[in-house]
Structures are given as structure tokens and as C-alpha cells.
Amino acid sequence: MTYRLHFSPDIFDTYKQLPGFARRDLALVLVDAQENPLDRSEPYGQDDGIIRTVAQGHVTAVIHLGHDTRTLTVPAIAYAGPA
């Protein structure tokens, strides 16, 4: 079952400010994670199956999995690449 993607307005503003190629990389990895987030992400610290990370290229995002509600929330985005 597909998870519903959720960004807070602040995090979506961060996403919009990324360079185009970084937005594309993040969008692709998040779309892939929506179908099977545990297989498409890595643990963030201790593997609790809830807080995970996804990364592609120069961009990484922390994701919070709401298994009961089938939501995938992005609380943080990090970009470490050229402007």
C-alpha cells in the first residue's frame, strides 16, 4: 500500500529553494519510498522502523513513517552540493 507524502509549509519552502537537480533527486527518492518505505530508506540512528533517511545525489531527507495512517512525513531536508 502506498504511503501519503506530507511536508510542513516550512519544509516545503526548503524543498522549493533547492537547485532544480536536487529537487528532482529528492522527489524521485521520496516517490520510490512511498511504495515501500522500509525497503527504500535507511535507519536514522537506531532502527525503530519509524525514523528513516532517504538520499540521492547531494540531498538527504529524514522521513517519519506513520504506519497506522500510511503517511510519510518529511521533517528535515539537508543539501550538500553546489548552488
Rank of each mutant, 00 (worst) to 15 (best):
M1A: 12
T2K: 12
T2Q: 11
T2P: 15
T2H: 11
Y3M: 01
R4A: 09
L5A: 08
L5I: 05
H6Q: 13
H6W: 02
H6M: 04
S8C: 04
S8I: 01
S8G: 08
P9Q: 15
I11G: 07
F12V: 00
D13M: 08
T14A: 15
K16V: 07
Q17Y: 07
P19W: 06
G20F: 10
A22I: 03
R23H: 10
R23V: 05
R23L: 09
R23W: 11
R23E: 13
R24V: 06
D25M: 01
L26S: 11
L26F: 12
L26A: 12
A27G: 13
A27Q: 14
A27Y: 11
L28G: 11
L28Y: 06
L28I: 08
V29G: 00
V29Y: 04
V29C: 05
L30F: 09
L30V: 07
V31G: 09
D32K: 11
D32T: 02
A33R: 02
A33M: 07
A33G: 08
E35P: 00
N36Q: 13
P37L: 02
P37V: 02
P37Q: 08
P37I: 01
L38P: 02
R40V: 00
S41K: 02
S41H: 06
S41R: 02
P43M: 05
P43V: 00
P43L: 03
Y44M: 02
Y44C: 03
G45R: 03
Q46P: 00
Q46G: 00
Q46N: 10
D47K: 03
G49R: 07
I50M: 09
I50F: 05
I50P: 01
I50E: 12
I51N: 13
R52V: 01
R52H: 07
R52K: 15
V54D: 07
V54G: 06
V54R: 04
Q56H: 14
G57H: 09
G57L: 05
H58G: 03
V59A: 11
V59I: 10
V59Q: 12
T60W: 05
V62L: 15
I63R: 05
I63F: 10
G66I: 01
T69M: 10
T71A: 12
T71Y: 07
T71D: 14
L72M: 15
L72C: 10
L72E: 04
T73N: 07
V74R: 04
P75A: 10
P75N: 10
P75E: 08
I77G: 11
I77H: 13
A78L: 12
A78F: 14
A80W: 06
A80D: 15
A80I: 01
G81N: 07
G81W: 02
P82M: 00
A83M: 05
A83G: 13
A83N: 12
A83Q: 14
